[in-house]
Design a protein around this nucleic acid. Sequence first.
DNA 1: CTAGTCAAGTCGGGGGGCACACA
DNA 2: CTGTGTGCCCCCCGACTTGACTA
Length: 641
Amino acid sequence: MCCFSSLSIKVEEDTGYHHPIKHEKALKRERDEDEYEHKPKKVKVDNEKKVKKRKQEEDDDNNKNAGLFCNVCLCLPLFLRWEEEKCTDGSKWRFLEHKGPVFPPPYEPLPDRVRFHYDGKAMKLSPGAEEVATFYAKMLDHEYTTKDIFRKNFFKDWRKEMTSEEKSKITELKKCDFTEMHEYFKAQSEARKQMSKEEKQKIKEENERILQEYGYCVMDNHRERIGNFRIEPPGLFRGRGDHPKMGKLKRRIRPEDIIINCSKDSVHPKAPPGTRWKEVRHDNKVTWLVSWTEKIQGSIKYIMLNPSSRIKGEKDWQKYETARRLKKIVERIRAQYREDWRSKEMRIRQRAVALYFIDKLALRAGNEKDEGETADTVGCCSLRVEHIRLHPQMDGQDYVVELDFPGKDSIRYYNKVSVEKRVFKNLQLFLENKQAKDDLFDRLNTSILNKHLQELMDGLTAKVFRTYNASITLQQQLKELTSSDDNIPEKILSYNRANRAVAVLCNHQRAPPKTFEKSMHNLQTKIDEKKKQLSAAKKELKAAKADAKTLRDEKSKRVVETKKKAVQRISEQLMKLEVQATDREENKQIALGTSKLNYLDPRISVAWCKKLGVPIEKIYNKTQREKFAWAIDMTDEDFEF
DNA sequence: CTAGTCAAGTCGGGGGGCACACA
DNA sequence: CTGTGTGCCCCCCGACTTGACTA
């Protein structure tokens, strides 16, 4: 729980003890705010005019795209057609036909020789209890199984699946011995690795067959790839961070849980024999094909189309267009929030400082979360006093803000930034008379913030700043780092460095790969070998040159030439390896994939590739090229984000 | 490494409930 | 006073994007 719900509670609690929100200064501020509220009617009128003018500019810009055609589906005058359709009635498609989801195979009971032991004694479990036990057995060497919450949740849910007899016998998890089961599964996966080529080929073909049958749908005359057409198999819930629900049983999804979405006039998917769907509906206002409710969090899961599909590509394109519209007015917005740092109203100051963080540090919005239902993580609006420290002076810099909090997926955000004096002073004010667990921005939440942003620009929300800042950073960095004189490996290193700058901005971290040291070592060995090769080649060249000098014949001249070429080739290879090593080292704890896939306008990369003669394959792999087909196709080298 | 998996975010909209005006 | 209409707020949930991890 955070800002808003706690705000109302805070006010109630206030009768009991001295709470920050109603201390004297705050009360005075409230009075000030009331006065302030009555004044600025005029400002609003001005704003409306500005908005209109801005809209005009934006429309002009959109029209520039009118000449583009869609090569994704080869047949349509591109995005504008989609625009029109959507504007009229919000429908996402006219025709949708698919085969429904693929269910995981049913549970296969263990052979009798694989036993479960309780309190030292072998015990045959009922199929239901056994299946759940296998989920745990499979995870035995995972850290999860050492965690109390995980064990407690698992045991509780497991007992629900036991027969009454089992339930009365099995009362303590620590007396359970799953090792035989664990060994069995290890052997199984080993056996899978050892399978013959033919067997592997057979499995591959079967998978391909399923993909062809269930992995595609028809949406508005196009055969489109589905993203995730397999139903999630049962297992134990693995939350991230300190998740209060880790270890709970994720039950098997049955056809009776499934809602199918398709068009009326399509051939509806058939439920497996002897079963029926929960519902078949025909809602073309949404993009999903199949949905079901997940029982642990009560959230809905979907089967949707692959990122290469028209519907996703169009959304992606729109996202970047919104970010580009922000680019045009971002200076205006910055000027405004700087102005707002001096507002008489607390809520406006908080809003302005939060927006500054979102803009400068690319923080996420920070919605409220259900306390006790999810891991304790925060974003900008839900920052608490305990997550921030103020240093008037630090490392030779003034007004340093130290941020340290668990963000999305419980990834730590740690940063020290020097901020403007006014921001610093405001933060001091927000912190006054608060406890560690209190909200930093007690008069702000994401909905207030986004409503404000919506007034500044159509479609503007907190996350647009992340997209905008990521993309603009890539563009700037590419400009700064690359030169057309560089060779291809150097250009790619520069690209990765630009990409890396974005990943650092967005705090996209990864655990250093387990094999990192080893692969680094391997690479170093290769480099050493290359160096030896090079010096050998140089020696040979020298000798050849000496020969040529004494002999002065055509043949030895030619030898010199080939040796020269060899030296050149080897030193190029060496350089390539060294660049690779640098790249990998710098990438140890940083993940580039997320920003590449979700934050960087692909047109920037495509234009850069075209301009510098870098093949697009060096930047995007096959999947990525499919996802960004729209950009690869419509972008020329002059594109500016 | 890549592709796939599935958890965890963002954000908007709908609907219930409440305050208030008015017949 | 009661019943009805209206507007607003807030909460919840649905849909969709983002994200780290793993087979």
